[in-house]
Design a protein around this nucleic acid. Sequence first.
DNA 1: ATCCCGAGGG
DNA 2: CCCTCTGGAT
Length: 215
Amino acid sequence: MAESLREARARQIDARLAELTPDPKVELDFEDAWQLLIATILAAQSTDKLVNTVTPVLFRRWPTPAALGAAAQEEVEEVVHSTGFFRNKAKAVIAASKKLAEDFGGVVPRDIDEVVTLPGVARKTANVVLGSAYGIASGVVVDTHVTRVSQRLGLTAETNAVKIERDLCALLPRDRWIGAGHRLVLHGRYVCKAKKPLCTECVLADLCPSRASDA
DNA sequence: ATCCCGAGGG
DNA sequence: CCCTCTGGAT
């Protein structure tokens, strides 16, 4: 019974956010699942604009998982580093592409349990890719933004990302998982910020146990 | 000067 | 659980 109340509240929260941003804008927009995967791996450590600068160069030179998987690490590092920074991600994108080419025929699998076997890919990245590239609701994206927002709103008491995801999945209908993840990320990034949350501008303020009383 | 993403490893 | 990676943001 208490559970249904929590579900109702979670749905209300997501509905509010959906009203605000019905169609969450995605900074990284790749139709190709492999390209989105690589971009998402890179994005974990950098800014979206920077990733959008690097990837055209990267994919022109190594257009397929097999090509990138067979690339020399120094060359990929050079491209990545010359365009921006995060040279340490070169190894990860090569390794993930290599395994994709060798074990999955160059196609990102549709099963998250298989996706997370790729080096450098865990649930967060896998959920982003499956949701955005295939429209598969494999779970709810949980990054630091979603973690913080969910905790503040009292949607979860957990600190572990896997447990938080389990809570969110239990509270929301599956057909909302992909969108809710996007919305929570954006809300955390622009409104429910770690430092100075903009509670006065927050559409969820009246539902939030953590809202700043004065801010 | 300090904090920080997300993944992997100890 | 804690630590590292790397350079940008604050």
